[in-house]
Amino acid sequence: MEGDSEIRLWIDSLSLSFGGVRALDEVSMEVKDKEILAIIGPNGAGKTALLNCINGFYKPQKGEIYFDGQKITRMRPDKLAKVGIARTFQNIELYRGLSTQDNLMAARHALMGQNFLGGAIYFGWALGEEIKHRRIVEEIIDFLEIAPIRKKTVGVLPYGMQKRVELGRALALEPKVLLLDEPMAGMNQEEKEDMARFIIDVFEGQGETYPDTPVLREGVGCIILVEHDMGVVMDIADRVVVLDFGRKIAEGSPSEIKSNHKVISAYLGQEIEV
């Protein structure tokens, strides 16, 4: 990755502890424009905790997070969604009672303006707005190839489909930064390949295929990916950050990480000599 590209997200010596457990210990990193950053590490290394700090679930005790120069540490999650940070979850966290289409529409919430009074009257302003956003949601549905399950309640969908709907829901928020927490966990090879393709397509942007949907047209320039499948990480990530016991132990291109002895010993469980 070129060093001159703009920094979008900057994490500055972030520390988070639960009682005596240090989940994150002085973690610093930056995510540049136009890059997929993968965060890897053994179980309990603090990968998800880091994502939870970025989108406001956890309030870190020390350190700051900046997004496009704006300090976003300890902001409320719903405010951060409006700033442009969307995520998917390790265990699927969809709205099980809503259809696929409504799950995506629900994610447009922050981008819509109507209140319940407009909604109660329905005809006029609210209907116009619903149609406008429905059009964008339909493009995302088309892009993710989930049109056949558009009106199905998501609770009854198979696991792989739910994962895809969750990606769609994150995209419907039109994020500037996309946080993906193990998007391929529990998938078979084909589903993994599909998901990897979608992630790359989202990253690169689809240009004039989806002219009305900015998030698909321009793509999401900044993706943070937490993933256990090393094959996927090595293939699609531009840069990799390795966490172990809450500490950043390595950072670099996939090929550098592959041969880093600290990373190898972290995964194989050997003592690190500092």
Binding site: D78, E93, Y95, L98, H109, N115, F116, A120, E130
Partner: peptide, 30 residues
């Protein structure tokens, strides 16, 4: 009005809170 409220923005936000309040907050619902 009840049917219209639940099929527009506010209603989806309500169901989001019912089904998964943590995800609802992350997806921008106050």
């Amino acid at each position: 009005t009840a049917q219209n409220i639940v099929r527009t923005r506010a209603g989806r936000a309500f169901v989001a809170i019912r089904d998964n309040d943590l995800a609802a907050e992350v997806m921008g619902i106050n």
